[in-house]
């Protein structure tokens, strides 16, 4: 019986192997010329992002919206071309160049940086009324929302909506690659509010040991919010935040926030934030070789001396070859 089966198998294999299928050596994919067209409407920005991101870091700065690469749960729209110029130069100036300076070379971002940066015009509107300003996915892609709202003349909005989001999302990329210490998970366990974090005021959240209400949503957001806030907030702003953390707060139904005579939540907000900051600082130093305080100083120095017109001229002064 076995012999018969082997015979069948052998014969079948023989017959099948005798078939010869010749593959066409021509690629089924059409040739795509990657050379930029100097007559293109977007030549200046395309040249800049190719030169500064693609050629150096193998990063695609994707400002032409592809809905398939965005979060389909949101209704989103593309970013305005002119605002993308602003975002491109700011991304380089306040993010890419900072890490390059702090790590001494381009290798860090080449190795650990996201491969795709997506610019989206609208914010992601959540059903709760909050908005999503950015998303980091799989250690590979960072999406920045609300690019159509950028106002270079409003530094605090720039800081809150864009710069903080850049460092927030990049910190996600880093911990998606090397996770944060287990110790961090225990500090505020029991105080996270994944659903309904919006109902907490920033002050109430700070009193509980978070940098703001979004940080109190879940531990990974807490982790990156500590880093991002520490990087972009000036010492005075950070001190104001810590002052909030040292007090007790109550929010009325109409949204009015009152300071309480005594902090009744049972959490030492200042000590908790400082404990978390220490963990973040150590993690960045030991896992990534990054000095958080030096990074912060570099970012704030750059923010303080930022000249948006001069930065935009890096794109707008690009001349197309004849």
């Amino acid at each position: 019986m076995k012999k018969v089966l082997f015979s069948i198998l052998a014969l079948t294999a023989l017959i099948m192997s005798s078939c010869k299928e010749e593959l066409n050596s021509k690629s089924i994919f059409p040739y795509v010329d990657e050379t930029l067209d100097p007559s293109s409407y977007s030549y200046q920005l395309d040249s800049f992002v190719k030169r500064e991101f693609l050629n150096v870091y193998n990063v695609e700065f994707r400002y032409r919206m592809q809905d398939i690469s965005s979060d389909m749960n949101f209704n989103l729209v593309p970013a305005e071309y002119d605002n993308c110029i602003t975002m491109a130069v700011l991304t380089k100036y306040l993010w890419w160049d900072v890490y390059k300076a702090q790590t001494g070379s381009e290798e860090f971002l080449k190795t650990y940086g996201p491969r795709i940066l997506c610019m989206i015009g609208a914010a992601g509107h959540n059903a709760t009324g909050s908005v999503t300003l950015g998303v980091a996915q799989g250690g590979l892609k960072v999406t920045l929302h609300a690019v159509n709202y950028i106002d270079p003349s409003n530094v605090s909005t720039l800081n809150e909506y864009y710069f903080k989001t850049m460092h927030h999302e990049f910190s996600h990329i880093l911990h998606q690659t090397k996770t944060y210490p287990a110790e961090f998970r225990t500090i505020s366990a029991g105080y996270y509010k994944p659903n309904g974090w919006e109902e907490r005021s920033d002050q109430e959240a700070r009193s509980l040991g978070f940098t703001g209400n979004y940080g109190s949503s879940q531990e990974r957001e807490d982790f990156v919010e500590i880093i991002a806030n520490y990087i972009v907030k000036t010492p005075d702003e950070w001190q104001t935040m810590m002052s909030d953390a040292s007090k007790g707060w109550k929010q009325d139904d109409d949204g009015t926030i009152h300071q309480l005579k005594q902090d009744e939540d049972g959490v030492d907000g200042v000590a908790t934030i400082e404990q978390k900051l220490t963990i973040c600082r150590t993690w960045l130093r030991e896992e990534w070789g990054i000095d958080l305080d030096a990074l912060r100083e570099e970012v704030q120095e750059r923010q303080a001396h930022m000249n948006i017109d001069s930065l935009r001229n890096q794109v707008l002064m690009i001349e197309a070859p004849n």
């Binding site: 209704n75 593309p78 071309y81 605002n83 509107h125 159509n148």
Partner: peptide, 12 residues
């Protein structure tokens, strides 16, 4: 890319 006239109708 965003166009204030056309994307008005797709803007959330």
């Amino acid at each position: 890319t965003f166009n204030h006239i056309f994307h008005y109708f797709s803007n959330p």
